[in-house]
């Protein structure tokens, strides 16, 4: 097994008095897709948001334990959280393009981080749209509003937008739950391609999807990490009774 890219050690998360993640430890491999599965409310999305510290913005949140990215603890006091989020990109459950042109959506991130040169920005736009398999569909209307795109196209635009800041890790929070089956298939195909360059962590409630796209899988239940391992192993020979029941469709 390759060396892990992200290691989570004894992570506890509280929303006020609600203990949302209980002593979670997990190793996440680089250049692979790790799927987090579990019934809704199990803490998988909260876990994901610990990796780019998006939980910081939730009022009354408290995090204990360590999340190491390339050996650096994200919750160290010295960490520049905005830089972290540049390194660890995120795609959300609902497509959330800015109400601007397609072009401006993509260059939003690069501009934030100080890239101004027109040519460079143009290059980034084309490159990331190609990476997100969207370039062909939108190349003639880059200056048109992103809100005119279909839901599936919007989500791929959001992926392209996330890639435009050159992240190393990409977090995806149920990225296809608001999409139709055709768009879902396109996005899944895209995810499988992305792992060549990026470390991908994806939350999904759809086990077929997890099986289709992932290398590794981690199963969460009621704030605890029940079981993790290579996807094929976890799906075919789960060790824990609860994992077995979940996969068999007994709950969630």
């Amino acid at each position: 097994m390759e060396k892990s890219r992200i290691s989570v050690r004894n992570l506890n998360l509280y929303y006020g008095t609600n203990h949302a993640l209980k002593d979670v430890s997990l190793e996440i491999r680089g250049s692979a897709v790790t799927a987090l599965i579990g019934p809704s409310g199990c803490g998988k999305s909260s876990f994901l948001r610990c990796i780019n510290r998006m939980n910081d913005f939730v009022e009354g949140v408290r995090v204990e334990g360590k999340v190491l990215l390339d050996g650096e603890n994200l919750y160290d006091r010295r960490v520049d959280a905005t830089l972290l989020r540049k390194k660890v990109g995120m795609v959300f459950q609902r497509p959330n393009p800015f109400p601007m042109s397609i072009y401006d959506n993509i260059v939003y991130g690069p501009r934030l981080h100080g890239i101004r040169a027109r040519q460079e920005l143009d290059g980034i736009v084309e490159e990331t749209l190609r990476e997100a398999a969207l370039f062909g569909e939108v190349k003639d209307r880059l200056k048109k509003s992103a809100l005119a795109l279909s839901g599936g196209q919007q989500q791929r635009l959001c992926i392209a937008r996330a890639l435009a800041v050159r992240p190393e890790v990409l977090l995806m929070d149920e990225p296809t739950s608001a999409l139709d089956p055709v768009s879902t298939r396109k996005v899944e195909e895209l995810i499988r391609n992305l792992k060549k360059k990026y470390t991908v962590v994806i939350v999904t409630h759809n086990m077929q999807q997890a099986a289709r796209v992932c290398d590794d899988t981690a199963f969460f239940l009621a704030g605890e990490l029940v079981e993790s391992g290579p996807g094929d192993v976890l799906f075919s020979r789960p060790k824990d009774r609860r994992t077995r029941e979940y996969i068999a469709g007994r709950f969630g």
């Binding site: 990215l69 650096e72 010295r78 960490v79 520049d80 830089l83 972290l84």
Partner: peptide, 8 residues
Amino acid sequence: ETTLYRKR
């Protein structure tokens, strides 16, 4: 340049 341990 890549370390996270420095506030910009």
